[in-house]
Write a protein that binds this DNA or RNA. Structure first.
Lengths: 151, 151
DNA sequence: TTGATTTAGTGGTATATGCCACTATTAATG
DNA sequence: CATTAATAGTGGCATATACCACTAAATCAA
């Protein structure tokens, strides 16, 4: 069996990224669990918080997320009263998003837990190494893979 | 507004990881699209291929994936006839997984596309840097965040 | 051997994410 | 101004992924 000689997925940038994301995601989720938020939700609330009543498209761009995916992800947060939306008066196509007071309180709660997770992670990985990793991730997030769209 | 002074999500290891994963995932998915497989599926088929009729649990461990999540992810691949399962004769709790001939053909097709995506990625990022990134991702995937389970 | 425990998967439910087709608005153009 | 084109979101559908409760099977213990 030459199968044994085949390289593992450790060569695939995408597979390694996904695997690490599952691992770290579970960890952050665990720590955030007492707040009732997933790490993705905490991140989304935070992104909304630091922006100025951002349009959905602006959030999606910042997070490199599909617009419709964002819409779906927002639903539970709206349902739970953490977030509300309103039409931009000057352009009714645009829907803006903001935290509710309840959402702000919940974000505060979640951020305290996030700090615990983040600190522990940095302690284990090393502040330096973590920063380098984030920088590398930021770099590849900024890549422009424009495949010939043949427009 | 002190909001403007708040750090972005670029400090959160988890958020950066997810964001990069979305970005790279979309890229690999795009390149793999002609095969009809998602990058996650190609990765899963490959993992099965290089293993020896692995048990579901073994695959899940290797990919750091929840066992039930693996079961769900496997369904479309079984439905499409790329993968089949069978009970381990010596331990009927264990369900083993293997590629069908059709699955093997499909994997070959997908791997050719994967190589294109992978090569292009490495060209853009740099072979060296990509290898370092994968190594870092492998390291953090191996971390042991054992939170006090208070059993 | 029988009863308690651990192990391996399944199914349900919920969030995460993406693509596509479609609608509503706004902008651009002749 | 009326058409056409571009922009911003929505909704449906599909996969990705997790947790939980539950079942079946094997193991351990008394």
């Amino acid at each position: 069996m030459s199968k044994e000689a085949l390289p593992g997925l450790s060569l695939c940038n995408n597979a390694m990224l996904r695997r690490a994301t599952r691992k770290i995601g579970q960890y952050y989720d665990d720590v955030l669990a007492p707040s009732g938020l997933k790490a993705t939700q905490q991140g989304l609330l935070y992104q909304i918080h630091i922006s100025n009543e951002p349009a959905m498209g602006a959030i999606a761009s910042a997070l490199i997320m599909d617009l419709s995916a964002l819409g779906h992800t927002l639903k539970p947060l709206i349902r739970d009263g953490y977030v509300e939306t309103f039409a931009d008066p000057s352009d009714r196509r645009i829907k803006r998003v903001r935290l509710t007071p309840r959402g702000l309180v919940k974000l505060d709660e979640a951020m305290k837990l996030w700090q615990v997770a983040q600190q522990r992670f940095e302690d284990m990985v090393g502040k330096e190494k973590a920063a380098k990793l984030r920088a590398a991730l930021d770099d590849i997030s900024a890549l422009d893979f424009d495949l010939p769209p043949a427009s």
